[in-house]
Nucleic acid binder design. Sequence first.
RNA 1: GGCGUCGUAGCCAAAUGGCUAAGGCAACGGAUUGCAAAUCCGUCAUUUACCGGUUCGAGUCCGGUCGACGCCUCCA
Length: 524
Amino acid sequence: MLRVFNTLSRTKEEFQPVTPGKVGMYLCGPTVYKPSHIGHMVGPVIFDAIKRYMTYSGYEVTWVVNITDVDDKLIAESNARGIPMSAVADEMTQDYKNNLAAMGVDTINVFPKATDYIQQIVDFTADLIAKGYAYESEGDVYYDVEKFPEYGKLSNRTLDQMSGEGGGTAERKHSPFDFALWKSAKPGEPSWDSPWGKGRPGWHIECSVMSCCLLGETFDVHGGGLDLQFPHHENEIAQSEARNGKPMAKYWMHNGLMQASNEVGKVGGRKTREAQESGAKEGDLASQEAGKISKSKGASAFRDLLKKFQPENIRFFLLSSHYRRPIDYSEERLQEVGKGLEGFYRYFKRFESVTGQSFYSLESAKTRLEGDDYEKSEALDVYPEFAKHIRELRARFLEAMDDDFNTAGGLGVFFDYLRAVNKFIEETQLETKQDPTAQNALTVATTIFRELALTLGLFRAPVEEDASANDALVEPLMTLLIDLRRAAKKNKDFATADEIRNRLKELGVTLEDRPGGVCVWTRE
RNA sequence: GGCGUCGUAGCCAAAUGGCUAAGGCAACGGAUUGCAAAUCCGUCAUUUACCGGUUCGAGUCCGGUCGACGCCUCCA
């Protein structure tokens, strides 16, 4: 039984979709005006794992991630670069999608763009005016927050609490908290026709409209970063529920934000504003503090990070803490996680050398029910203790994931799993003995591991080797060196054997002598 | 100022109020090895920032103190 933390109730709830067996999931995607940074990958990777796990659990999931391609920031960027807004949007959308593809986030069903829904946005806005929840003012259309009594229910605040806050010029608005559904166009700005004159959509309306068009008036999961809880998601609720008269989403899920420990300054929050107002005397200090990574300042482009780290390394890192917690970004942390990952890769090679099968080609169960069946395999029962252990590990993993997608707990189980299978190889001496019975048991155990790893989108395919590092000569040269070294060892000429190994190590190549006179090499 | 989150070992990080507080990284022993590497075995939190309370029982619930952070303004 899946349990999900719902921001609306601030508790974990049993997951029961609106329509049995089907799940509609909407994640707020980016405003495409700058290249994405690592913070933009947090949500997609987490919800990718959530979708995979839900699918594995037997749900048919439709996942929508929107692209907001019309916005003040896009207009500013377009002006700054002297190219059309649509060109900026196309370029950054491509960057975003490239990054998702690199990260293996390929489970998103629809990427709707706001500009493809202008007519629906106009209709939606007109509905809100007709129902008395919005009003026109000098070509703009505003949502009248006073008319929606539940305003603030998601972020747990009331209009009274906020009074004295909020701001900007309120001349055109009834209340400073009213927000724009439609903005009139200034000369030269991209615009569309509407009953209120030429203009463009406000920020929040596109999500209400596209989620409704694609997933229905009430869908199951609405996700996004914690920073979107207010005002974005609050406003989406106000718009959608006022228009449709029913709950917008059953479960609201918010992921914690990526924090940068020092390289990116603190950019949000009251301190900065105060610092600015008081002559920035705290500014320098504040910029040294930890703070969330923001695209409005300095975070390096994700595509550059991909040059330094394997996508799987980044994915493993993102899944190594619970999704609702903030996660600190640092290259050291990424490297540390990478060391842990290597143990898995080594095991996959070991598995292949012992059974002759590639881990990546194992056909594992696609659903939990299939897996329940598969784990009963008699090949495993030949080794009762091992069988019991493997089944316990699988149960522990599923238990962790059922409890609000505890990927960190699940990854912990993976390391126990790794030890179990390595130990099994030692105990059965599979590296030096032919033992089909033990090989079968190991294959079953490893296939179950693959089944679980795939629910997180991990270990789907071999990590790409750096093509430039391996030209056709490397393989035969390594074979030559290893043969020479073997001959030296046979003659007890360990000095030569060690020199070969040491000098290769200096070149970044590690030799490992395995039982049976086998020598394996790996490079960094 | 309002609302909220968090504080678990040297670092990272799990844990429906209930058995010995997972796991990773680092470190240190041992097995194995010609020596290594890898792997396995073992050590590494009498205790969850601090103080008090509720309870048969608290990392977990309540109150307070200290500290870190988020939102209230563009954000994933």
